[in-house]
Design a binder for these strands. Sequence first.
DNA 1: CTGATTAAGGATATCTTCATCCTTTTCTAT
DNA 2: ATAGAAAAGGATGAAGATATCCTTAATCAG
Lengths: 144, 144
Amino acid sequence: MFFSKTCEYAIKTMIYLKAEHREGKRLGLKDISSHINSPEPFTAKILQQLVRHDLIDSVRGPHGGFSIKDPNAQLSLLQIVTAIDGDGIIRKCVLGLDECSAEHPCAVHDEFVVVRDHLASILANTSVKTVADGVKNHRKVLTR
Amino acid sequence: MFFSKTCEYAIKTMIYLKAEHREGKRLGLKDISSHINSPEPFTAKILQQLVRHDLIDSVRGPHGGFSIKDPNAQLSLLQIVTAIDGDGIIRKCVLGLDECSAEHPCAVHDEFVVVRDHLASILANTSVKTVADGVKNHRKVLTR
DNA sequence: CTGATTAAGGATATCTTCATCCTTTTCTAT
DNA sequence: ATAGAAAAGGATGAAGATATCCTTAATCAG
């Protein structure tokens, strides 16, 4: 609803990679798509996108796979969402107007800026590490 | 982003009908689609949906057209959105999980319930009349 | 070096959303 | 009654998102 299917899988992938991360470990496509419950070939394409956006590293061949690019950097959900879906959810007018701002507001601009600002701040302030910890502790899940 | 194109046009239509409403007056398809800047045949289909959902009335033939069904009832944006897009934006898990609740939360459930509740309350508490007044006063717009 | 393994890349298929077109029905005015 | 106007309904088309398949490239183990 908020995000494209592609973005949903991307977020789950990043959380899973973070939750499973340890030095030198790589996770393969099969492993990832089975654990986040996503179609394998489609997930392959998304992993490529994440590589191109420098969010993850990939290595081919036996014992190849994917891993978080910079495990020590603080990564937010917003970085994943903007990489995959762009910043439309934060920036675009909900009524589809090209020009919509405080100066030239659409009919519902004032009502929605607050919601979008709220969404933006949640996305920016939610770290992948934090939610990955929830998954590691089995308090939160990525499937079902 | 939040809403489908269909829903965007539906919201604009309802606001325009409300802004232009007066006793016995009807607005035609051409009038509506030109004022909300939407494709005419597509808008025709959306108007049919709004009629079926009892949000507007229609009359065929010369001097026919569309008008708000119950001009005195308090109508919220939420009623339009749920009629057209359903309640997915309020109810569905942002990670696409079938079961996602406080008891069985997805990895980002806690972060997003607050945003969705916020969105739901804005939608429920924003009346079409209020935003239509803004359009009538030329403080807010439906196009450009 | 060879074969096996795994990701990358390109082409293609499917499904949904967005959009148009044409015919039919209903209504009004004459 | 009839002609014109306007919405309703059904069929179809276009575009984008979602998903798959197949070939190529890289890497590793032996």
